[in-house]
């Protein structure tokens, strides 16, 4: 009896805390949007963050995209050639990348490469009282520190997703056409016939924008909300990576079920 009550109480406390955090994050999101004016009027603040989130993630995105595309090329060819449909390799590679793998894998990589860095940076600024100092200088830390990092992420990630998908298609082409010898013309023309810009590519880009907002918000929120100790910062970074991954996968399911029902 006593054990059951304790268990229930614990579950209740977790749920209440969870709801409270979601509410707090939503309010924080509104604040970030409200204080975004400066990130646009003083564009170099945002450009700096695009450099840190976007440019510095470029290498890992390019390399991963290439490898994912090459694996798709190998595996896809293996299966397709059994049905004599090796020419459809381009379709398989392009559709899987544009619809799912591009946004999801690039999103996960972005969360662990750039999202965690943003959380760490904001968390450390909080721990060393830099955010409070800024606030005391009558400069809003949300406008000066949080919003530019948020927008930097929101702008960088869709571009990284596009680069990832393009590199993936290139990787598939490299394996399929150059190494295995699938007919080049058929590879591209079948791809173009089957991949619709609005339906496949635009929807993939919409996904990437949604993921970008989610990951960037989680990253800045966890940093801003962390317990200002070394341990608190490290926990916040872990939470950023875990929550971002879960958010991406859950949102991907929801978006896919709306976008690709036909």
């Amino acid at each position: 009896m006593n054990g059951a009550t304790t268990l229930l109480r614990r579950i209740g406390a977790r749920v209440v805390e969870g709801v409270w955090r979601v509410g707090f994050a939503a309010r924080f999101f509104m604040l970030v949007l409200l204080y975004s004016g400066q990130s646009l009027t003083r564009i170099h603040l945002t450009i700096r963050e695009i450099y840190f989130s976007g440019v510095l993630s470029l290498l890992i995105i390019v390399v991963s995209g290439l490898f994912v595309g090459m694996v798709l090329g190998l595996q896809g060819y293996e299966t397709l050639q059994r049905y004599g449909a090796a020419e459809s390799l381009g379709v398989l590679v392009a559709l899987s990348l544009a619809r799912e793998l591009g946004p999801v894998v690039a999103g996960l990589l972005f969360a662990s490469r750039a999202g965690s860095a943003v959380t760490a940076e904001i968390g450390l600024m909080k721990t060393t009282e830099q955010l409070k100092a800024m606030d005391m200088m009558a400069v809003s830390p949300i406008a000066r520190v949080v919003a530019p990092r948020f927008w930097g992420g929101v702008i960088s990630m869709p571009l990284l997703v596009a680069i990832f998908s393009a590199m993936g298609v290139f990787g598939g082409w490299l394996i399929g056409v150059v190494f295995i010898g699938v007919d080049e013309g058929a590879f591209w023309s079948q791809m173009q016939a089957a991949v619709d810009f609005r339906y496949d590519i635009a929807n993939g880009m919409i996904k990437s924008v949604v993921f970008a907002v989610a990951v960037s918000l989680i990253a800045v929120f966890e940093g801003y909300d962390c317990t200002p100790t070394a341990e608190g910062v490290s926990r916040a970074i872990t939470r950023t990576v875990v929550s971002s991954a879960l958010a991406i996968l859950a949102l991907d399911f929801v978006l896919t079920s709306f976008m690709f029902r036909g």
Binding site: I50, V55, V169, Q192, I201
Partner: peptide
């Protein structure tokens, strides 16, 4: 820094253009 970000944005839009025109059938 500006230069790098500029290069990054151009590559990103280039990739998008590649997806739209070469992979997809935006024009057709």
């Amino acid at each position: 820094l500006d230069l790098w970000v500029g290069v990054f944005v151009v590559i990103g839009f280039g990739a998008l253009l590649f997806l739209a025109l070469r992979v997809g059938n935006f024009a057709a």
